[in-house]
Computed example of a mutant assay.
Amino acid sequence: MEGIRLKCSLDEKQIADRLRYNPEILEIQLFAEDLNHPERLIQTTRQLKQKGIRVYLHHPMIYRGRFLDIISSDRWMREYYDWSCQTLAQICKQEDILCVVHPHYSESECSFFHDSRLRKKVRQRIEQILARGGEYFLWENTVKGIFSQQNPHFFTELIEPLNLPICMDISHAFIAHQGSNQKLQQTLEQAGPYAVYYHVVDSMGETHDSLPLGQGRIDWQMVKPYLQGREYIFEIGLADHRDCRAMIESAGYLKKIEERAINL
């Protein structure tokens, strides 16, 4: 089936499971320890590319048990953020691939989007990363805080002035908009010139639930045209990370929507 675009870690059994479905795209979720042995990541990337698979990386989410935050008051956290981004930028340049990066997650110092000083600080920190090889990064929106659609200045202060390439997580935007498909459509329209890549995943619009397509409240008939000709993966929550059938079923769901549109 066409449109098989999946996610996994560097775990060999996860990769073997994904390869059973001949994916077009594979996004590799990295963990902090993976960057201590970059040769394994490079070798895996090359093996996948030899199979004709387009590879994306995803920056580690957690360091020392805490979610990363680009403006963390913890010096070790900031230094790790910078070091890990620099390491990944070098790998991406060498292997000609891109990496998804979160400026922050929902519960962090970036959560307070009303504070203009913090918003300015986030922009300055992103500019620093961009100056150190950040052209290989796609910046992902989250569900709450400065780098989310909850922030009314998201586009005007960050995306547009920096001409920032983004990974648009559709469910994150839907949750930030409190389950409004109308506001989600407005965001997808506004993000169009900057969205290089998408995370396709359903949600009820209340919490970070990572549902298979069709099990949430997102209007995929509305969303589908925005994905046309774009790169994306199905980032579905899995009960067993070595069994990606929920992602495959979501690909089938999206395919049926496309076929239905053609037959109308």
Rank of each mutant, 00 (worst) to 15 (best):
C167Q: 03
K144Q: 11
G133W: 01
I166G: 01
L138M: 13
W139G: 05
F147M: 10
D169F: 06
T156I: 13
D169L: 06
C167V: 13
I146M: 03
I166A: 04
I146V: 09
E140G: 10
F147V: 05
S171H: 13
T156P: 02
A131S: 15
A131W: 06
M168D: 10
D169M: 01
L164Q: 09
F155N: 00
S148W: 06
C167W: 04
G145F: 03
L138F: 11
E135V: 12
I170F: 04
A131P: 08
H153S: 11
I146W: 03
F137I: 05
E157G: 00
F154G: 02
L164I: 05
C167S: 09
N163F: 07
L162M: 08
P152I: 11
F147W: 15
S148K: 01
K144A: 10
I159Q: 06
E140Q: 10
C167G: 04
I170T: 08
I170C: 07
A131D: 15
D169V: 05
L162V: 01
E160W: 06
D169T: 05
I159S: 00
L162P: 04
A131F: 10
A131K: 12
N163S: 13
Y136V: 12
P165L: 10
I166K: 01
V143C: 13
N151I: 05
P161W: 09
W139K: 07
F137T: 06
I166Q: 05
F147E: 03
T156N: 13
L158V: 01
S171D: 10
E157W: 02
P165C: 12
F147A: 06
I166H: 04
S148A: 11
E160Y: 11
H153K: 15
W139E: 03
R132G: 13
L138I: 14
R132P: 10
M168W: 13
P152L: 11
A131R: 13
C167T: 15
Y136Q: 12
P161Q: 07
Y136I: 06
G145L: 02
Q150F: 04
N163G: 11
N163W: 14
E135Y: 14
